[in-house]
Design a protein around this nucleic acid. Structure first.
Lengths: 338, 338
DNA sequence: TTTTGCATTGCAACCGATTGCATAAATTTT
DNA sequence: AAAATTTATGCAATCGGTTGCAATGCAAAA
């Protein structure tokens, strides 16, 4: 194990003070360029690496952003993370990533860990069953910026990055109606989550626009898992007055609905039109291809981190632009075109 | 912005020395349990949080593991990361995650960042075109453990977590042969990567076992993207002596092959049997369902981190068990059953 | 009663980089 | 040539915990 090289070593060798070495390495303007060069050269030669802890300790800032997501293993989230990582890395920030596994308890623990790790900012997409905001209070109190994305929590001190779920829900439902659907089932998730309540609202708006009464028996609140999709179709099959369209708030679940429907002999889209949400890769593979909403995951990650970093660098305060709404888009495929 | 509470504040309030407070908070045995209790209580009351930098600076250890993956946005990798995160989090470790985007250059930068961040250990799955080991030398020199998973780099100082790619390639090719295939195309990736060379080797072994001569014109080295799949099928369609089976080293590419084949009127599996690799979610959605190899992503992540942590804690040195081979499994589905 | 030993706690020197302020040297201005 | 700037560098305190060693006090042993 080699000993670590410090600025003191470099200073001693070059007959300079540690202060000068520190400044040179940080490209401080007050240092003579020749001196600077010799220091940088020597540092490289010795394999010097800055001690982040000493630096952070002094500076009181880590260059690290905390990220808490419900699950890492989803196509959408990995796109988001990829976008986040790209921007963060480019700006010299690191990402500390953890998952809540959709549980409020784990989310709280994660938030605490992030707090103790002194992340400079926190990016969160809340868990399925998160209720309160208390676990974030520490951050707000200490003035550490918190930004929510996708599954947000409305709070005056925090920014949010979302898509217009109401609009998207409206568009997709309208599309189904325009294709002739009159009894449209809606499979969704916990309505406390903005994403699901928004889509549901959009669904309702579309029905209203076309003068179709809302039939609550067609609304199914589930966890949007594959199993939930199968269960939903099982229920559908037992209905007397069967739906002629179904809008599922997530592609994974939608795909399992399609499979279950096909297994039971339903013809898609003739017997029933099916629409999903997210534009997950599977939506282009299932037959028939799934009508869905394009969800800019990667871009969402990029914007989230960029917003956060701008805030941290003082370029633009988070509270000025409280919400960023990204564009989503209806993608019509075979599963709904009658 | 509240001021941070330090052990000095606690010490002053309780009329004790910072040393005692520090020890109490770390549950040091020499501290009287009553004193300890009063300190811990007061700390909680004041909302004290330990300053990791100060601690790390002194201790010369972070509780952070670096992870470098080719891409974050793949189903396999997100499963791996989910597994890693679960184990790391439980053991009190943080994960610093970055992606190389399949480029050696970015990988080198990432490694450097990890080095400067002083991660306690590094977990890597190498990029598509990585050639040398030099960028990891710093870690080896400083005795910081490096562990490769999936896409490994053989090096005496580093451990590896893999599946038996040769065996898997052998099984899936044998299966194709047993289904009657005699001209089996193989679409693979950069053969410098163990995963692809291993699968190719398995393919060759299977041919050899059944006395089928290797026809190199049936081997296509690609980047395994969706486009590569389409290109492969285009080429296949132009062949005079068309293959009756195809083994693609990755499900994403295999799915696009299936789609391209169907578009050209090939019947699967009758005209041509198709097998993939990874058991990606899409493999269960495509029609016909894809025969593939189950790849234990989540488990791989868990094992990787567990191995790393055991090493760090001195439970079991990494160099004793140099390679861990996880079980993979052939999953036969409709795409190959004639 | 004196000595020895153990249980607790404190002292003070780290860990390595940063930065306000002072100083010295070089350059320009008067 | 003296004074006023400008440029470049150093001093020393600071960030907050950790830890080897010393010191204290009290109980048990001699």
């Amino acid at each position: 194990m080699e000993k670590e090289v410090t600025i003191y070593d470099i200073a001693k060798i070059l007959q300079l003070s540690p202060a000068t070495v520190s400044r040179a390495l940080n490209d401080h303007p007050a240092i003579n360029s020749k001196t600077k060069l010799s220091i940088v050269t020597k540092a490289a030669e010795l394999g010097y690496r800055s001690n982040t802890f000493a630096s952070n300790l002094r500076r009181k800032s880590t260059s690290t952003l905390g990220v808490i997501v419900p699950r890492l293993d989803s196509s959408f989230m990995s796109a988001v993370l990829a976008g986040m990582e790209a921007v963060a890395n480019q700006a010299g920030y690191n990402l500390l990533i953890s998952q809540s596994l959709e549980s409020q308890g784990k989310e709280k623990t994660n938030v605490k860990t992030m707090y103790n790790s002194r992340v400079d900012g926190l990016l969160v997409s809340v868990a399925y069953d998160t209720e309160g905001f208390e676990h974030f209070e520490n951050f707000v109190k200490k003035n550490i910026p918190v930004l929510f994305f996708d599954r947000i929590f409305d709070h005056p001190a925090c920014a949010s990055i979302v898509i217009d779920n109401v609009q998207a829900g409206f568009e997709i439902t309208s599309h189904l109606i325009e294709q002739g659907c009159r009894r449209i089932m809606h499979v969704t998730g916990n309505l406390k989550r903005n994403v699901y309540s928004g889509r549901y609202q959009g669904y309702q708006n579309a029905l209203a626009k076309y003068g179709i009464p809302l039939d609550e028996s067609l609304i199914m609140v589930t966890d949007l898992s594959q199993e939930a999709g199968e269960a939903a179709i099982e229920k559908l099959a037992e209905m007397d007055n069967k739906p002629d369209g179904i809008f599922i708030a997530n592609d994974i679940c939608a795909v399992s609905c399609v499979q279950a429907l096909k297994k039971r002999g339903f013809k898609i889209p003739v017997d029933i039109a099916v629409a999903g949400f997210n534009n997950d890769p599977v939506s282009k593979v299932i037959e028939p291809n799934l009508t869905t909403i394009f969800y800019p995951g990667r871009e969402m990650g990029e914007v989230a981190v960029r917003t956060m970093i701008n805030h941290l660098k003082g370029v633009q305060k988070i509270d000025t632009t409280n919400t960023v709404i990204l564009k989503s888009e209806l993608i019509v495929r075979e599963s709904t075109v009658k």
